[in-house]
Design a protein around this nucleic acid. Structure first.
Length: 460
RNA sequence: GUGGCUGUAGCUCAGUUGGUUAGAGUAGUGGUUUGUGGUACCACUGGUCGUGGGUUCGAGCCCCAUCAGCCACCCCA
């Protein structure tokens, strides 16, 4: 029976040319990570469900891919007192699935650090690149399987880590030649202080998720959504004031928090941290990438406790190309001692889309093999095969074309694979031991009658 | 989880008010031609028209349902 070839929703195949471009991005990021002393780790795609469940909120649990147990996966269900039809789905899940696909690289990191703490050198600086899976509805630029690319420092609360990570951002985007890049930073403690001042301490989480949307919706729409959520009206007024504060786009708020009437202990700490990171980055960086303080930046994830950062591209309608921040309590849930961590993440799917659209990939991104040797007929095939070995032994990446003898096919093959030269070998070449060299893209003969050493010279 | 759009060959798409045996380009396979310059020529393969039902003498086309994919929300990268 024939099966129609198709992909599972939200997943993609990558053509050789696409992989080459993706690797170009990965390699660029990796080289910068390594330069700053980050080491690569790997963790399994599969984690125990107990590791993953409950770390991403109720919504997140729904988006986890669960793996059905092997063998008689209904055994546990049969052991239950109630009939299967009486059980809620979330009650059945742990009975039939004990594993799941990882949802991000951060929770596996927390598990990893606690589990291997005796073997790690702290502060632990690691990077991790790999696919993660989420069962949400795909749409443009959003997939069920996508790559994350993270760098984190665990076990050091120095703010210079923040500065270093910002420098990594700047360096990577410079290397990728992405212009108009802006690092926006803010501090969760500062926001917390403001919330406290406005009497919104108890609603901090919904305040955070709300103001994170301010770049998409208006202040009025935001306040409306709070009303709908059932927030008391006196809190709404406070929220209004808070939103006024942060959308001022001026450092007036900052001075207010530091020394003025909006002073709170936690707010002061946040403001000082923010200033330090900002000033220090400017002092220690001289490139193109801009940095700005953005008091409306909140970031949705609720584990952030200090600096938060997002990468924006000015003049290009795309979401952020990366984000990160400091988190203080990540290892706690796995029984580790309270280690502070700070990390950044590159949104490589978006970086790819953007570079593709703006034509930012170098032309010869993956130099394929240099030369394609084509035997003219079956008589010269074996001789050609030996010549390929000779070229390879001399360090020239070379390939023999073993297929359809149509010339169009040969050239099409070379062209598609980005092979620069073709050497066709017929009876004449076999007898004389000479080579005739043609350039594929220019559609021109370079010359004929070359000796082996002449050929090597032309190709290297 | 909510809404919108789209399903015809591996891919891109035609397909008349509903009327014989569903077409083209491209890709694939085979061949013709050329001791050397590639976009030439010929043939072939490939489709349960997403699936199931309904209307009709007759459905790729009309109706209903369903599934899938995409897009936009929620959320996120």
């Amino acid at each position: 029976m024939k099966i129609k070839p198709s992909l599972s929703k939200g997943t993609r195949d990558f053509l050789p040319s696409e992989v080459a471009k993706r690797n170009y991005i990965f390699d660029t990021i990796k080289s910068v990570f390594r330069k700053y002393g980050f080491e690569q780790i790997e963790t399994p795609a599969i984690e125990k469900l107990e590791t993953l469940t409950g770390k991403y909120g109720e919504e997140g649990d729904k988006l986890l891919f669960k793996i059905l147990n092997s063998g008689d996966y209904l055994a546990e269900v049969r052991n239950q007192k109630s009939a299967i039809s009486e059980l809620e789905p979330q009650e059945i899940t742990p009975l039939i699935a004990e594993k799941g696909l990882r949802y991000d690289l951060t929770v596996p990191l927390a598990r990893y650090v606690v589990q291997h703490q005796d073997q790690l050198a702290f502060p632990f600086k690691r990077f991790h690149i790999g696919p993660v899976w989420r069962a949400d509805r795909p749409q443009k630029g959003r997939y069920q399987e996508f790559y994350q690319c993270d760098a984190d420092v665990i076990g050091s609360s120095s703010l210079l880590n923040e500065v270093e990570l910002l420098k990594i951002y700047a360096e990577v985007f410079e290397k990728l030649r992405i212009a108009n890049c802006e690092l926006r930073i803010n501090n969760r403690k500062l926001l917390e202080g403001l919330a406290e001042y406005h009497g919104l301490k108890d609603h901090f989480e919904s305040v955070i998720t709300g103001i994170d949307k301010l770049d998409k919706i208006t202040k009025e729409q935001l306040l409306e959504s709070y009303v709908k959520l059932g927030m008391p009206s006196n809190s709404i007024d406070s929220l209004k004031n808070l939103i006024e504060d942060i959308t001022l786009k001026s450092d007036l708020v900052l001075t207010d928090i530091l020394d003025g009437k909006k002073k709170t202990t936690i707010g002061q700490v946040g403001a000082k941290e923010l200033n330090f990171v900002y000033e220090s980055f400017i002092k220690n960086y001289s490139g193109q990438v801009k940095i700005t303080k953005d008091y409306t930046l909140a970031r949705g994830l609720n584990y952030y406790t200090g600096l938060i950062v997002e990468v924006k591209i000015n003049g290009f309608a795309i979401g952020s190309l990366g984000g990160g921040g400091r988190y203080d309590n990540l290892t706690e849930i796995f029984g580790g001692q309270n280690m502070s961590g700070v990390g950044i993440s590159f949104g490589i799917e978006r970086i790819y889309d953007m570079m593709e659209e703006l034509n930012l990939f170098p032309e010869h991104i993956a130099e394929g093999v240099k030369v394609l040797l084509v035997p003219r007929d079956s008589q010269t095939e074996e001789y050609t095969f030996r010549q390929v070995q000779t070229l390879r032994d001399a360090g020239i990446p070379a390939e023999i074309f073993l297929g359809n003898v149509k010339k169009q096919k040969q050239f099409a093959y070379a062209e598609q694979k980005g092979i620069s030269y073709i050497v066709e070998i017929g009876a004449n070449e076999m007898e004389s031991g000479n080579f005739r060299l043609r350039h594929v893209k220019e559609r021109q003969e370079v010359g004929s009658g070359f000796t082996l050493s002449e050929l090597l010279q032309k190709l290297s």
